[in-house]
């Protein structure tokens, strides 16, 4: 595994360099916005990567919460299976399809719904119970980094195109800011609380926080916002070359996020190892002190 990391790092570096070249040179210049539209190739993949990481955080948090009780674990397993099966079938029912906004493909919705049980069982299989919380904090922190990039590149794109840095009250922008604040508070809670219940509280906060992700994603489908309508699957006419460059950039940023998560995961394990070592040290110290004070205590009686 240790050898795999440098190999993947080199591949990711090459991929990121090519993605940058593709974004600046290969992708055609957009007719109305000009070159500034190329921010799109960093802004959108960063948002998708953040959503994916928050989704993994959500699944890991649920797994962590239910791992304490065998009955809750079994119930969660069946609920997730039911969501996957019923949700996928429902996407192809005409009555349900009427609820979808124009341009949203039922197959895309069904695939997204199907990802819930797939990720749930995959994460449960790959990560033992004690590592679920480590995975949750890892994905939350790296997700916040990517979400920060979305919030920084967005206004830098908006200023020359809309003439303003931020559209106050815009649902997409506000819900993204709220999402960022939720996960920042999640990290603050984890960082500054030493209670035994911190991990459980953080997991509960993450489950509720993740509910904002669909709101952010769907806000431009259901509401009129200053933010542009979806260009993929939303009836937008994205140039195929732009689409390819976008996917290359997403692949590059996903690989980068994976490597960063890998490092952060190891860091968290090391942090817990140090905490354990400190706890053992204090226990050993307390034991020595107790032995030393025992005869003294007896004599004082």
């Amino acid at each position: 595994m240790k050898r795999l990391f440098p190999i993947l790092s080199v591949i990711t570096a090459i991929l990121l360099a090519y993605a940058l070249y593709a974004a600046l040179v290969v992708a055609p210049t957009e007719r109305t916005m000009g070159d500034v539209q190329r921010i799109f190739y960093y802004h959108v993949p960063s948002a998708w990567t953040a959503f994916l990481l928050f989704f993994i955080n959500f699944i890991a948090s649920i797994q962590y919460l239910v791992s304490r009780k065998a009955s809750a674990k079994t119930a969660a397993k069946w609920i997730v299976l039911a969501i996957g099966a019923v949700g996928t079938i429902a996407c192809f029912l005409p009555r349900v399809q009427q609820l979808f906004p124009a341009g949203m493909r039922p197959s895309a919705v069904a695939t997204t719904v199907l990802l819930i049980p797939i990720f749930y069982f995959l994460i449960g299989w790959l990560f033992p119970e004690e590592k679920l919380d480590v995975l949750a904090v890892t994905t939350a922190e790296v997700g916040v980094v990517f979400c920060t990039i979305v919030l920084v590149t967005g206004p830098l794109w908006a200023r020359p195109v809309w003439g303003i840095w931020w559209a106050v009250g815009d649902l997409r922008l506000t819900s993204t800011l709220v999402l960022w604040l939720i996960y920042v508070s999640y990290l603050v809670l984890r960082g500054f609380s030493n209670s035994a219940q911190t991990q459980m509280l953080a997991a509960a906060l993450a489950v509720f926080g993740a509910l904002d992700v669909p709101l952010v994603f769907l806000s431009i489908w259901f509401f009129r916002t200053q933010h542009p309508s979806p260009v993929i699957g939303g009836g937008g006419s994205l140039d195929p070359r732009m689409g390819q460059v976008l996917l290359i950039n997403w692949l590059a940023f996903s690989c980068f996020a994976f490597l960063v998560c890998w490092s952060r995961f190891r860091l968290e394990l090391l942090h817990r190892e140090v905490e354990e070592a400190h706890a053992m040290e204090s226990l050993a110290g307390a034991g020595v002190a107790a032995k030393a004070s025992l005869p003294l205590g007896r004599s004082s009686r």
Binding site: T148, I149, L156, P160, V260
Partner: peptide
């Protein structure tokens, strides 16, 4: 003038990633 915003966005992205990696 808009090019400045493009470069600012790309530089900001890598500054944020760099800062995070340095913190790790």
């Amino acid at each position: 003038n808009a090019i400045k915003f493009l470069f600012a966005a790309y530089i900001a992205t890598w500054v944020i990633h760099g800062a995070y990696l340095a913190s790790l």
